[in-house]
Amino acid sequence: MNEPLLEIRDLRVGFQTDHGLLVAVDDVDLTLERGKMLGLVGESGCGKSVTARAIMRLLEQPSGQVLGGEVRLEGRDLLPLPLEAMRKVRGKEIAMIFQEPMTALNPVHRVGRQIVENLLLHEDLTPAAALKRAVELMEWVGIPAPDQRIHDYPHQLSGGMRQRVMIAMALSCNPKILIADEPTTALDVTVQAQILDLIKRLQNETGMAVILITHDLAVVAETCDELAVMYAGRLVERGPVESIFQSPLHPYTKGLMDCLPKLDHPPKTMLPIIPGMVPSLRDMPRGCRFAARCPNAHDDSVLSERQPWRECSGGHGVEACACFASTL
């Protein structure tokens, strides 16, 4: 029982494009323990969503391909599974919700039917029993008057309610893992708080593990147990949330935290910024990818050499670039 629920080792994912093979996820290691919530954070293009899709084997075809590594669910590697077996994993063992529930739901079917479809696929239920279960699920995720809402089409529901329907569908077969890919980015802050609270409550009730993908560090600070920060396709820092927020080790993590406007700071003061932009996938340095924007960078040697990973105390690890490794 000591093995982690989900273990990702040396995951490499690439996309075949007009410019050749672009590696979007480069040697990522992640571990998800039972019942924990892991926040996967980074800016657009850092590979966080690609990592999630690779776990589900839902990469865009035919361009996307896993180039190497392992994704072990309770010890079983998912990557070499035949499609038929993988289909049983999706929805049943690992479920996923997306940023924009309007595009993830089928607009021409009533929401009830969409929940029922998933139940009939994975569970041995009669259609009538599945419908009853769908109403219960909708009530469970806090949809008012579920026996009426079940007959609604997705466009008749608000953004928050649609996301609740998505969560009801995702949880319909009691998955062991829920992957939530920017579940609240399209929602208002007040509704975002409701949805995050809901995910947290459902997690406590079912004991499932959650991977929460977001660009918002503050969301992670409030909801997650573990945090993994990605930059330009690589993991740069990983550890318990408290440890990372109290003493971030990588300059990118520090920069991300500092550049958020804070409510209790005096208005109209300059924010500390991370200068420049993320390097293009087409000419990614072999070594430290943050060097061009890094306040600590002192020479170019870190660009050409892959920088080592260092485990610090309490499960807190970081890509220990030579520019700051001496201070660790």
Binding site: L196, A221, Q246
Partner: peptide, 9 residues
């Protein structure tokens, strides 16, 4: 104000 997530743990 209350619904804004905060970094400050």
């Amino acid at each position: 104000l209350e619904s804004i997530p905060q970094v400050d743990l």
